[in-house]
Deep mutational scan, measured.
Amino acid sequence: MPSETPQAEVGPTGCPHRSGPHSAKGSLEKGSPEDKEAKEPLWIRPDAPSRCTWQLGRPASESPHHHTAPAKSPKILPDILKKIGDTPMVRINKIGKKFGLKCELLAKCEFFNAGGSVKDRISLRMIEDAERDGTLKPGDTIIEPTSGNTGIGLALAAAVRGYRCIIVMPEKMSSEKVDVLRALGAEIVRTPTNARFDSPESHVGVAWRLKNEIPNSHILDQYRNASNPLAHYDTTADEILQQCDGKLDMLVASVGTGGTITGIARKLKEKCPGCRIIGVDPEGSILAEPEELNQTEQTTYEVEGIGYDFIPTVLDRTVVDKWFKSNDEEAFTFARMLIAQEGLLCGGSAGSTVAVAVKAAQELQEGQRCVVILPDSVRNYMTKFLSDRWMLQKGFLKEEDLTEKKPWWWHLRVQELGLSAPLTVLPTITCGHTIEILREKGFDQAPVVDEAGVILGMVTLGNMLSSLLAGKVQPSDQVGKVIYKQFKQIRLTDTLGRLSHILEMDHFALVV
């Protein structure tokens, strides 16, 4: 994948999101292997301009796509893939009243899908469409860049269908997702969380590099694949309309690839034109409109599966009536509230959605109805927002919020430890010299600072030695090549209790 991002070429006709291997024109390309080798690009942008032909009021008969309808489940399912879809609609009884809503608040519980998330729908649909058009064949390999849930859905379907599955996901995604993927037989590649989507090191860039190296491999490409919004247009939206008897006044959905909100909203605009569509985008993402909503100094966020630093091709923002931004604290607070007060075992993005819903639905009156999409299960986040310690460490809970008995030293300040200034190293000294210094002084790690004293990161003896043994660096290389740029900081005025929580999850903390 090139470091400079080429513009994806656009073909003359058809839909841009065809499933299957992508040609340089962004659509299915038939021909000899030699032709494909000559024409197939190194990668295709996940934010390529959409060429979708959908228009409100256009006859369904003019759609270029294969459409399906929700099917009634048999008493005995032939395999677990038949437990994807037909998820329950559940009334939220307490939270709406707590925040003064007059309307009825309903939750579409997508964590009841077989793999635990709304992404099971698009995973199965992308595979079925690729099999139907002859792209996927027995023994082929599926590769997908994902925040985890699409990966789980694909790995689940691949396990049943017999495909090899490789999932490329950023490091910030939970260990629970990784464990589930491994249990399903998927191979996992992790990428830096802070890598831009168009960087060769991003999950998108690495996935395309693997595709170019592995024979008979395919990126189904949830960011561009029409099967993504079509899955929701054909099934999720129809289920909502049936469950609500066609009567709903507002739908609120958090947005990642945009397939969920695009597919549902398009069908609702056709069948229930008075329904307002509300999009939820986390602070630090750029999906919301108008652009002024996205202006923030924050560039990272903890909530998973929603928000991006690019506009995915499948996201149709014209069908969203209003956007709201959400933050991590309210997302996790509301997710825990949904679990504790409503018994809905949902993930953090569901918290984002409901946090926005109780604001947006203030305009609705008694007798009206708001539906929220709860995308995934708490299963993926047992060591994250479900953990009091994690919430404390991230600053989303305060010590006084917890009532468990603490040891005698818990409320003492870090400054009472009488710490001395640490050994520091410059980023320009060599790895070999740094190892000598650390061994001589008896230290395992040291902060790396520039000549102005600005902290650049941390270097550890173990990481340097393993990097040297693996051949990633040489003793003569500058130590700046092996620094940890993500590390926890703590102030002298913070409590030892807070430091204790940090050290339970990290090997060190830097006192500043």
Results as ranks from 00 to 15, higher is better:
4 E>P: 12
5 T>F: 10
6 P>F: 08
7 Q>E: 12
7 Q>R: 02
8 A>L: 15
23 S>G: 04
30 K>H: 09
30 K>S: 06
33 P>K: 10
44 I>E: 11
46 P>A: 04
51 R>V: 06
52 C>L: 00
54 W>E: 06
55 Q>V: 12
56 L>E: 12
62 E>I: 13
64 P>C: 01
68 T>Q: 14
73 S>N: 14
74 P>H: 07
75 K>I: 06
76 I>W: 07
79 D>G: 10
81 L>S: 07
81 L>N: 07
83 K>Q: 11
84 I>W: 08
87 T>A: 14
87 T>L: 03
92 I>M: 11
94 K>Q: 13
104 E>C: 12
105 L>M: 04
105 L>P: 04
106 L>D: 05
107 A>Y: 02
109 C>Q: 08
113 N>K: 01
116 G>K: 13
118 V>M: 14
119 K>D: 02
119 K>C: 00
120 D>C: 07
121 R>G: 00
122 I>R: 02
124 L>N: 11
126 M>G: 03
126 M>E: 06
129 D>L: 05
131 E>S: 14
131 E>M: 03
133 D>G: 07
138 P>I: 07
139 G>M: 06
146 T>H: 01
149 N>K: 01
150 T>A: 03
151 G>M: 00
152 I>T: 04
154 L>E: 02
155 A>T: 10
165 C>D: 01
166 I>C: 03
167 I>M: 10
168 V>P: 02
168 V>M: 07
170 P>N: 01
171 E>Q: 10
172 K>T: 03
172 K>V: 02
178 V>T: 04
179 D>C: 12
183 A>P: 05
183 A>I: 01
184 L>N: 01
192 P>G: 08
193 T>A: 11
196 R>M: 10
198 D>W: 07
201 E>M: 03
205 G>T: 08
206 V>H: 01
206 V>L: 13
207 A>M: 01
208 W>H: 09
213 E>G: 14
213 E>L: 06
221 D>Y: 14
225 N>S: 05
235 T>G: 13
237 A>M: 02
238 D>E: 11
238 D>K: 10
238 D>L: 04
239 E>K: 03
240 I>W: 02
241 L>E: 03
242 Q>L: 13
243 Q>F: 06
244 C>Q: 06
249 D>N: 06
257 T>W: 00
260 T>R: 03
268 L>Q: 01
273 P>E: 09
276 R>L: 12
